[in-house]
């Protein structure tokens, strides 16, 4: 496996919830990444942000790692959950909260 793949694999496996995004949770640099940050913050989920803008290898490598062409990408317990559309859809259908809890991830008592 290439270096970047090792890095990605390690990030995905050593963090319960990891968001590959453009920018950082404090300063998202893309509307779609910002939407997922808002949802995770609303749910009070602890997550690790990885800024793919820091390296082109990372930005391309993550798309190959998951066979998913866009950023952001959310992983929970090592499993790719989806991009912005899917996370928003799951959140609106209250499926995201259930999925996180099923995976043993603490979620603030969302309505």
């Amino acid at each position: 496996m290439s270096g970047i793949n090792d890095f990605i694999d390690n990030e995905v496996k050593t963090n319960d919830v990891v968001l590959f995004m453009k920018g950082t949770p404090q300063f998202p640099q893309c509307g779609f990444s910002g939407q997922v940050v808002q949802i995770l913050d609303y749910l009070g989920v602890n997550y690790h942000g990885v800024n793919v803008l820091e390296s082109d290898d990372l930005r391309q490598g993550i798309k190959e790692y998951s066979n998913w062409p866009t950023i952001p990408q959310l992983y929970v317990k090592g499993e790719f959950v989806g991009g912005c559309d899917i996370i928003r859809e799951m959140f609106q259908a209250s499926e995201l909260q259930g999925h996180l809890e099923e995976q043993g991830v603490a979620v603030r008592g969302a309505a």
């Binding site: 779609f32 066979n67 866009t70 790719f80 989806g82 899917i86």
Partner: peptide, 22 residues
């Protein structure tokens, strides 16, 4: 949903991400 979206992305093969930002 991930599989469904991947089917659509595959249909747009190669255009996602570059010509189609979002």
């Amino acid at each position: 949903r991930v599989q469904q979206h991947q089917m659509v992305y595959d249909a747009l093969s190669g255009n996602m991400g570059d010509a189609l930002h979002a």
